[in-house]
């Protein structure tokens, strides 16, 4: 049966709530409405107000409240309505959620999942299309996961809820309505394992979340020009599967990292640095990045020029010293 990413996420929440009474879901509009993207659809009706509930409109309060609940044995899964609306919670995330285990030498753990719809491509107005994953990946003590496929959406969210560490779960909202024939419950691979979405021996595209379909489309187009492209889907930014990326680039000798986030000081730059160190003697060309530009996310009528699309990926591949 064709299942959308939203439905897969909803199924993951349901199955996790069924499996463990300590799992509670809360945030803004997650109750009767079922979330603005309907990821929590029907949870309050089926599990009751105690298990899925609306909160005051205050993101720092939501994450702080979740921290307190986690200290007393709950596993809160909280929703930030949009990427840019999660910023008020940043101090709670950076100073408490991420550090609680460390500052208490492992005595206090807060296994919270913070779900954040992120990224652009949906024609959203200002403050609805940020790619904020680099901010979270930069904070030690957090895991950062982001699915690109429907089965991974289910599997990674179940993993995130079961994980003993806090997880920032970045949901690519441009892929919310993507569908696939999958049988749920689906279990793919654990955290920290990148998956190859397409085999190829000439160049490695490293992608995650919303840029995985872009990479796959570019790979198809490149194949028509005789270039065999491997597409690596990172799935989790923390832990980062350096071994998988190194193995692929060591074989292909060429690498392009694709990310929707602004490039400067971002994840793509980090991966490029790691690849050039680990694969230096295998590389036939400098590692390239295709990312969002270093500008605030543009108004919706401009976004097709901002997002790293197939043409820009193909251009980057062309620049990889083929002669």
């Amino acid at each position: 049966m064709a299942v959308s990413m939203v439905q897969a996420l909803n199924a993951a929440l349901r199955d996790a709530m069924r499996a463990d009474d300590s799992v509670v879901v809360f945030g803004e509009d997650v109750g009767a409405l079922g979330g603005v993207f309907r990821v929590t659809d029907g949870l309050t009706a089926d599990f009751g107000e105690e298990r899925c509930f609306d909160t005051p409109l205050a993101e720092s309060g939501i994450v702080g409240f979740a921290t307190g609940m986690a200290m007393r044995g709950f596993r809160p899964v909280v929703e930030m309505q949009f990427d840019a609306f999660a910023y008020p919670a940043f101090e709670q995330v950076a100073s408490h959620v991420a550090k609680m285990r460390n500052r208490t030498r492992g005595s206090v753990t807060v296994p919270i999942v913070i779900r954040i719809p992120y990224g652009g491509g949906i024609g959203g107005v200002e403050h609805h299309s940020d790619s904020s994953e680099s901010h979270y990946a930069h904070i030690p003590g957090l895991k950062v996961a982001t699915p690109a496929t429907v089965d991974d959406a289910y599997s990674l969210l179940r993993e995130a809820i079961d994980d003993p560490d806090p997880v920032v779960f970045m949901e690519p909202k441009g892929l919310y309505w993507s569908k696939a024939e999958v049988a749920l419950p689906a279990r793919t691979a654990p955290f920290g394992h990148a998956l190859s979405r397409r085999e190829g021996s000439d160049v490695t595209l490293v992608a995650y979340g919303p840029t995985v379909p872009v990479a796959l489309e570019a790979a198809e187009a490149a194949a028509e020009n005789g270039k065999e492209v491997e597409v690596i889907d990172l799935r989790t930014l923390v832990p980062y599967d350096e071994a998988a990326v190194t193995k692929s680039v060591s074989t292909t000798g060429r690498c392009v990292v694709i990310s929707e986030a602004t490039g400067f000081a971002g994840i793509a730059g980090e991966i490029a640095a790691q690849v050039q160190r680990a694969c230096f003697y295998s590389l036939a060309a400098p590692v390239h990045r295709v990312t969002g530009f270093d500008i605030p996310y543009p108004p919706p009528m401009h976004e097709q020029h901002y997002l790293p699309g197939v043409d820009r990926v193909l251009d980057a591949i062309e620049q990889l010293e083929w002669d």
Partner: peptide, 13 residues
């Protein structure tokens, strides 16, 4: 920043 933790822990308890 610990004040919301107190609220959450109290509620959880």
């Amino acid at each position: 920043t610990h004040a919301p933790h107190a609220a959450g822990l109290a509620y959880a308890a």
